[in-house]
């Protein structure tokens, strides 16, 4: 892999707090290595800002290996930037070239209010999980793990759905700000497994109700979410949730 260095112009959203109205600031960074990650480039920029007595740009990040789901930047018109199946922290600077101008914005969604700069509040996701994204089994109640064989295909599908990292890129990219991919991934994981069976109906009804309450938009099947999901979660999960919901609501007695 050829290494190179580049100078860049960054147009970054700055917003003091959730009440303030924000604006774009333009910064330039020099001599950025193509081997850096995008966030390391931000580290360089922040050090530069601190040096000149300004406040560094706040952004969420933690594991920096693409699994915690904290990082959340809308880079040049795409969540997590130009690479597919990728998080911001795993985006590397060889995706850019010398002289580029990069626009960085926070996730934009009514349900994800901006807290500061590029940091948004994704508490809505936690509340959706609270509404039913679990199996009600108290500690110590479990039977032997191999007492219940599970079809490998189903287990694999459940795993694929469970690989969601809850970053919110699906909401950020959806033209409707819909959270259906996130919700359906959890609904699917638990609907596919026999352990999830007892609460199957109430789970989907409650989680969807909470999703609606949070102010997310409605899915119109553009499938942008699947294309931008860092973990490649399939929209087949959304179809499964639709089925689950239809079945549950038709069968429901209330």
């Amino acid at each position: 892999m050829e290494h190179y260095h580049m100078n860049l112009t960054l147009k970054v959203w700055r917003q003091k707090n959730s009440q303030a109205s924000g604006n774009f600031d333009t910064h330039s960074v020099k001599n950025i290595s193509s081997e850096m990650s995008f966030l390391e480039m931000f580290d360089v920029l922040n050090e530069q800002l601190i040096e000149s007595g300004k406040e560094p740009i706040a952004f969420d990040h933690d594991c920096r290996e693409g699994i915690c789901g904290a990082c959340s930047m809308y880079i040049d018109g795409q969540p997590h930037g130009p690479w597919q199946k990728n998080t911001t922290c795993q985006l590397h600077m060889r995706a850019f070239k010398d002289g580029d101008t990069i626009v960085v914005e926070p996730w934009r969604s009514k349900a994800f209010p901006v807290i500061k700069d590029l940091v948004v509040d994704r508490g809505a996701f936690d509340r959706i999980i609270q509404a039913g994204g679990y199996i009600s089994v108290n500690t110590g109640n479990a039977v032997d793990a191999n007492a219940l064989p599970i079809d490998k295909k189903k287990a694999d599908d459940a795993f694929d759905a469970a690989s969601c990292i809850g970053c919110g890129a699906c909401v950020a990219t959806c033209k409707n700000g819909s959270a259906m991919l996130f919700v359906s991934a959890k609904v699917s994981q638990l609907a596919l497994l026999p352990q999830g069976e007892p609460e199957r109906q109430s789970r989907v009804l409650n989680m969807v109700a909470q999703m609606d309450k949070e102010g997310f938009g409605n899915c119109t099947n553009t499938y942008a979410c699947e294309a931008e999901c860092p973990k490649g979660i399939s929209v087949a999960n959304i179809a499964r949730m639709n089925r689950e919901y239809l079945g549950a609501s038709l069968g429901s007695e209330d």
Binding site: K11, W13, F24, Y74, D76, G77, Q78, P82, V103, E105, R108, S109, K110, A111, T173, K175, N176, G177, S178, G215, F216, G217, N218, T220, N221, T222, Y223, A224, A227, E228
Partner: peptide, 28 residues
């Protein structure tokens, strides 16, 4: 109704957006 709700779900639009990278124009 969907159009209205979906529009309200994103009160502040993106300054830079490239939806063509992830979905067809007619689906949107």
């Amino acid at each position: 109704v969907l159009w209205k709700q979906n529009r309200d779900a994103r009160p502040i639009k993106y300054y830079s957006n490239k939806p063509e990278k992830n979905s067809t124009w007619y689906s949107r």
